[in-house]
Computed example of a mutant assay.
Amino acid sequence: MTEKTGISYVKGDATAPQGKGVKVIAHICNDRGGWGKGFVLALSRRWPEPEAAYRRWHRARARNDFGLGAAQFVQVGERLWVANVIGQHGMRAGSKGVPVRYAAIEAGLGRVAGKAQELGASVHMPRIGCGLAGGTWSRVEPLVAARLTRCGIPVTVYDR
């Protein structure tokens, strides 16, 4: 665990979170309804529910909160949830830069914090926003610390 952030770092698979108690696996999704590259593939190999729920959420976006900064919680086990956090605009880098949206990740993590507190859960994740979204961990880590660990929520980040 780093003293500065309170985040624990482990080698392993974020779809197989370690430890006891209720757990929330947080990851980043795009705001275009696309699901098919990166960490979401590992989630889909393990459980069909997060992808199905995300696609339903996106299809009904005119009537719900789907959009940057939103979070959807999908129960995949008795004591295990997946948080689909909308933290990237589009799916690839282009003339307007990378898809990651740090403010949206921060807002989504605030929603994850609320759910984790409600459930008495720890939060588990890969280095969110830093793969296909094009973000940097030096920008994301302080958001995780501010929204989760400083609120007393245990966080584990998994590196493969």
Rank of each mutant, 00 (worst) to 15 (best):
V85H: 07
F66E: 01
Q88E: 07
R45K: 14
R63W: 01
L41V: 09
V74T: 14
S44K: 14
Q88V: 15
A62D: 14
G69V: 02
R56E: 03
A71Y: 14
A83F: 14
R63Q: 11
A83N: 04
N84K: 03
R79G: 08
S44P: 02
R61G: 00
G69M: 04
N64K: 05
L43W: 07
R59Q: 12
V82P: 13
R46E: 07
A52Y: 02
R63A: 06
V40C: 15
E49Q: 15
G67H: 05
H58I: 02
R55A: 03
G87S: 03
W57S: 02
A42D: 13
R59E: 02
V76Y: 11
D65F: 09
Q75K: 15
E51K: 15
W81M: 08
L43N: 06
R61W: 11
V82I: 14
A60M: 10
R63D: 07
H58V: 01
H58T: 00
R61Y: 14
A53W: 13
S44F: 06
F39C: 05
A83H: 10
F39S: 04
F66N: 00
V76N: 08
R61M: 07
R61Q: 05
D65N: 09
A52G: 03
I86L: 14
R59M: 13
N64H: 09
R55E: 10
A42Y: 13
Y54K: 00
L68S: 10
L43M: 10
I86H: 02
R79S: 15
Q88D: 03
E78F: 09
V85F: 10
L41S: 07
H58P: 02
H58Q: 06
A52F: 07
A70E: 14
L80A: 04
V76R: 11
R79E: 15
R46Q: 09
F73R: 02
N64D: 06
V74Q: 05
L41Y: 04
E78Y: 10
Q72S: 10
N64P: 05
G69Q: 02
N64S: 04
G77M: 13
P48G: 06
D65I: 01
E78R: 15
Q75F: 00
L41C: 13
G67R: 05
N84A: 04
